[in-house]
Computed example of a mutant assay.
Amino acid sequence: MQRTAPVHLLAAHSNPPPCDSTHPFPAILFSIGGFAGNFFHDINDVLIPLFLTAGHLRSRAQLLVADFEPWWTQKYRRVLFHLSSATDLAVASSPSTPIEPKVHCFPAAVVGLKYHGNLLCNSTNAPGGVSTLDFRSFLHGALGLKEERAAGAEKPVLVLISRRTSRALLNEDGVVALAREVGFEVEVAAPARMTSVGEFAGVVNRCGVLMGVHGAGLTNMVFLPAGAVVVQVVPWGLDWAAAAYYARPARRMGLHYVEYHTAVEESTLYDKYPKDHPVLVDPWSINRQGYDVSRPIYTDGQNLTLDLARFRETLLQALELLPRPTRPR
């Protein structure tokens, strides 16, 4: 909340200043402070809640942005303007860009966004009964992606989300070679490749398998075609987070889901702690102490070396879930 500006509501009988700008549509006031800037949080904390709040208005809304950052709104411009018939965004506050104080007047306003849970649209509690699948369809439409199902191919494409700091695959080259040996065409996506949402969305939309170690990059599964496969490598001690943030959402999006649970010996934590330490033998006892305790250890403090013989079975399982290639008669 330190990155989120407060909003003050004035009593109805107060004397408002005259309008500098009068808008014909209701305002939807939302913040891009908080954890925005991390792709999981961009989708989970801002874009899905914005879809839940504004989607049923059928674009007859003016988006009013608090904690405005030009780079963020430019990055998601196509998505934002798919929710609004206004030609621009109204800015309520900006921590880094000086803005001229203005009085914006609206016929009505919604202050804050609806939130249903991790990458979730709960259709029983949403206007129009929209679901997570509806959000996925909206996102594909906003970015001009195909809505087709994953197609069979002789060598299906596997996009590997490559991590560079925490939770990195120390034998990534071996994993890539194994995936190619099993029968995949592999594209390695380093962080720099994911900066353009529209461009990388197109890459993911054309692949059959999205694979990565637990982390924000797996949120790119929102761009996959229906029937594609998500492969999540679950680091030591992160079972709960893996299930809550990616496993259950993947299935709600009509995707196949496969996970690989690393053994403790595959984590660099194994060489950092005594073999009887709770970090190694009882991760839940660490997680129960709160995120401030567990994050430096399990989220930020380990890298992985996968057992390739064991991981082969995971890749074969993902391959088996894909449609068979269509052969000409």
Rank of each mutant, 00 (worst) to 15 (best):
E100Y: 06
V157R: 02
A27S: 14
W240G: 00
A244V: 12
V186I: 02
V264W: 02
P323A: 13
D300V: 07
L316W: 10
T124Y: 08
L308N: 04
P156A: 05
A216R: 09
L113D: 01
S196N: 15
N205S: 11
C121L: 00
G144E: 10
S285F: 13
F184Q: 11
L321C: 08
Y76A: 03
D45T: 10
E265P: 03
G129E: 01
V176H: 03
V258I: 11
L63V: 02
S166C: 12
A247C: 13
N118R: 04
R310H: 10
S59V: 04
E199W: 00
A168C: 13
R149G: 12
P325Q: 07
L57G: 02
P98H: 06
V7M: 12
L322K: 15
G215C: 11
C19D: 00
N38S: 07
A243N: 08
V79G: 03
L255H: 06
P95L: 09
M1T: 10
G198N: 05
F39Y: 14
V182R: 10
L113T: 01
R136A: 08
T299G: 01
M253S: 10
E185G: 06
H140Y: 07
T97L: 06
H104F: 14
P107N: 04
M221V: 12
K102I: 15
F311C: 04
P70H: 08
A90C: 12
D239Y: 14
A179L: 13
L89I: 04
L9T: 14
A216N: 05
Q74G: 02
N303C: 12
H261Q: 15
H13F: 10
Q74D: 14
T53P: 07
S267P: 12
A126W: 01
E148D: 13
V79N: 02
A309L: 10
Q289C: 12
W284T: 15
S96T: 15
G254Y: 00
R58Y: 06
